[in-house]
């Protein structure tokens, strides 16, 4: 099987995010990058599927900056066979990213039997790329997957919905599966795995190579700012019965006119 995994490199969850100089994006110069946590489930599921189907390969695709390539290296250290990196700024929109992924998969000259992704990236939380990729490649897609079974070209997929209930989907490959937490326990990249990953092929492509230009942009970013600082809370003492009435009136007035919550 030709198994593909799309991964994104996102700021470490403990990063203190600040806007960049001209407020068109976040400041990325001192960010520590990690693999998007949902994508780890995608990599693990791809490796499990590979192990169950002799002769399969796992190819990883990432779109983003090339200064740090930790996420791709980690995926290969975990056991993926090769990877494609499309060099791009971190501020691409979902449409451009999906188009670049489609282009990179085409460059691999392998026809995917299945594409795994995380259900969303934890930095922009757009939740669009998996569905866009599937749409562009004319593949079915199922998202928020917490259960995966494979037999022949049949997939049985469990999808988490509101209230903790589960929907069960049947799909046929080729197909795109967007993974959620709970699907599996991602393995560690072992030290011998890290050493081996050095020798695995990593192909670098430009946006032009995969047929993406600024004209594909649907969303441009501007005016990034930090949320306003919370004003300090107000405290009202109303132990004295004589003033309670007045204080309640004052609080209601403030809630209505200042906080505008009632």
């Amino acid at each position: 099987m030709n198994i593909f995994v799309c991964i994104k490199q996102v700021p470490d969850t403990e990063t203190k995010v600040i806007p960049n100089g001209d407020a068109t994006f976040i400041e990325t110069s001192s960010i520590k990058w990690i693999m998007n946590p949902y994508d780890e489930f995608a990599v693990e599921q791809a490796l499990l599927l590979k192990a169950a189907n002799a002769g399969s390969t796992v190819t990883v695709v990432r779109v983003g900056g090339v200064k740090d390539t930790e996420a791709l290296r980690t995926a290969m250290a975990m056991g993926a066979d090769e990877s494609f990196l499309v060099e791009a700024d971190d501020n691409l929109d979902s449409y451009m990213t999906a188009k670049a992924i489609k282009g990179a998969i085409a460059k691999s000259e392998k026809t995917p039997d299945i594409i795994f992704t995380g259900k969303q990236a934890i930095d922009d939380d757009c939740l669009q790329v998996p569905q866009l990729v599937a749409q562009m490649m004319e593949l079915p897609s199922v998202s928020v997957i917490v259960g995966f079974e494979h037999s022949g070209d049949k997939l049985t997929l469990k999808r988490e919905i509101e209230g903790g209930a589960i929907e069960v989907y049947e799909a046929t490959t080729p197909c795109l599966v967007a993974c959620n937490k709970g699907l599996n326990t991602p393995r560690y990249a072992s030290l011998p795995g890290i050493m081996k990953a050095k020798r695995k092929p990593l192909t670098q492509l430009s946006l032009a190579d995969v047929g993406v230009s600024e004209e594909d942009r649907r969303v441009s970013y501007s005016d990034f700012s930090l949320p306003p600082e919370k004003p300090p809370g107000k405290k009202f003492e109303a132990m004295d019965e004589a003033v309670q009435k007045d204080i309640v009136k004052e609080v209601v007035g403030l809630l209505r006119n200042e906080a505008k919550v009632i």
């Binding site: 930790e70 290296r73 980690t74 250290a77 560690y188 030290l191 890290i194 050493m195 050095k198």
Partner: peptide, 14 residues
């Protein structure tokens, strides 16, 4: 080196 950083990351994760 980038490989040493990965080794460190992995050991720290463990």
């Amino acid at each position: 080196s980038s490989e040493q950083k990965e080794i460190k990351e992995m050991a720290m994760k463990f």
